[in-house]
Design a protein around this nucleic acid. Structure first.
Lengths: 327, 327
DNA sequence: TTGTATGCGTTATCAG
DNA sequence: CTGATAACGCATACAA
């Protein structure tokens, strides 16, 4: 920076200003500085800037899995909003483990991100303490709760799951099987299962854990779970898979077993992945605002960092029951 | 750090050492320091460490799309290797634009990453100059070329595409339609199309651009492209979609149109996504080592940063024709 | 095995 | 609109 300053005939601080706040520098000075930057191939060192200004222009994000398309679409949406504003994304995956999440929080905080985004509202006590002491904006995403750490952006997985179950019941289904995610460390899975059970109870349908299978989010798991459910309950008239990955696994298994959907078995999913509407039959599912979650989260962060205090701490982006042919 | 040093009764440098190289500090001293760290809730500031040591322990990665599962699986694999070694991932997506890529390279370099990973071998001249001047390890991934900037890890998309086309020809297909990605800024798409054309030529089959459709990587596009091809060429006996996303779109469209696969139309894909083997019929495709690309890239980076110079600059991880029922 | 002195490159503060 | 000065928190080099 000193070289650039010498070349442009100004002080270093003017170079700094020209790069950070071009509008606060005279046009002619700005041009001389930009020319010098180009001529000398100057690349600023943000580590120094971060150290001095205590602002890193980085947002740390922890998702359970980078490769799960549901989360990667949210990441992409965040990236699209934050980058034009000069922010970079520090991304880590917890592999659905709270311990991993805590470890990521600890190491991410050492980089002094300007904000941090976590998935879900369940975190280890140590992680919570670290975040509290760090005193930076914390956005939780993908689920809702009454008392977020700071701000939470997402949808009620409980209500969404309840609504889909009620939809199935409204179509006359009573023998409903449920395939969901493992509940450990995953409040979305917990809430979806709870919403399913609640809807059954409200409708006076006896619920029974033998109608529930919990498994990992893979296509194969959906097919395996379907077979397990049908063995236990030959009378099964419908399956609610609380993730489209699982629901698609179920549909593909039905194709293989020549089970007609929805005539013999109705199938419903959760997520509305891109391929879901293109299945045969098209999948009835819950549309979740995954891109919006990323966008709104990023916008909230930018607003907060710009000093705007928004009162709203729980941002419900809703969901939608997408009724297609599979149920 | 000074507070921790005072609490532990040592100098700051000993605290630094205890955190960076615990083995170079006496066990008793280490314990006192760790206790002090815990008591004071000390969180080191990596911006300062980066400034002083000129090592950021960050690896910057630029992919065309974070949400494309092919790339997100590679990202996840990189993350799994790098994080235990103390590295964080700075991730950006270029949205398949070389200009965006250049802009990301420029801003990423200001953070002084210890290495940078780019997708493909096609980059803007300015990006190339920035990288050269920055003098950091550069790993290109997902394709191969003779003269990488530094190191390239992937597979020959040309050879893979040629091999799949030859496979279709060996099964007796002559009227082969091709659905591929847009070629602009995307050397993988260019190479796949070239490999397809080469195989046709080698087999003495007239190639004709009317048998080629280029489109975006979405399920819908596959179906649309299929209809376009069939309108132009009612005699079409097979389709090679150079991405499973497109191939699955084709399969789903065939289901809808009641086209029997492979009897009426053979379908082949490229990528071997998780769902591909579960389609009905299971999709014949090219398995690409997407997880291995991430793993090997990360391992190379760690080796380089540890000072190991490996002669090999072109690392071919190969591919595999996966013959299933769709073709 | 531990400590002292120093500087990494930038930006906040205050002055002009 | 521009500049002089100092400081951000850590790790390198060298010494003890």
């Amino acid at each position: 920076m000193r070289d650039v300053a010498l070349e442009a005939g100004v002080g270093t601080i003017t170079v700094s200003r020209a790069l950070q706040h071009p509008d606060r520098v005279a046009a002619a000075t700005l041009k001389r500085i930009n020319d010098a930057v180009g001529k000398l191939h100057y690349v600023p060192n943000l580590a120094a800037g971060t150290l001095r200004s205590a602002r890193s222009r980085m947002v740390a994000v922890i998702v359970p899995s980078i490769s799960n398309s549901i989360f990667s679409e949210t990441l992409q949406a965040m990236s699209e909003v934050l980058r034009p504003a000069g922010y970079h994304l520090l991304i880590g995956d917890s592999n659905y483990s709270l311990l991993e999440e805590e470890s990521l929080v600890r190491t991410f905080l050492a980089r002094r991100p300007d904000a941090i985004v976590l998935t879900g509202y369940t975190h280890s006590p140590q992680a919570l303490e670290l975040l509290e002491r760090a005193g930076l904006p914390v956005i939780e995403i993908w689920n809702l709760c009454r008392k977020p750490i700071d701000t939470i952006v997402g949808l009620s997985n409980y209500e969404a799951s309840k609504a889909m179950t009620q939809y199935l019941i409204s179509k006359g289904h009573r023998a409903i099987g449920y395939i969901g995610g493992l509940r450990e460390h995953n409040d979305r899975s917990v809430q979806r299962e709870a919403g399913f059970l609640r809807a059954l109870k409200d409708a006076g349908i006896a619920s029974d854990t033998s109608r529930i299978v919990r498994t990992t989010f893979e296509f194969e798991s959906g097919g395996v779970a379907l077979n397990a459910l049908m063995n236990r309950h030959p009378d099964l008239d419908s399956v609610f898979a609380a993730s489209d990955i699982l629901a698609i696994g179920v549909l593909l298994e039905c194709l293989r077993l020549k089970i007609r959907v929805p005539q013999q078995l109705a199938v419903a999913g959760f997520d509305d992945m891109g391929v879901s509407s293109r299945m045969t039959p098209p999948l009835t599912t819950v549309r979740v605002p995954r891109t919006e979650i990323g966008r709104v989260t990023a916008e909230r962060i930018l607003a907060r960092l710009a000093g705007e205090e928004s009162g709203k701490r729980v941002i419900d982006l809703g969901f939608e029951i997408v009724s297609r042919e599979s149920a």
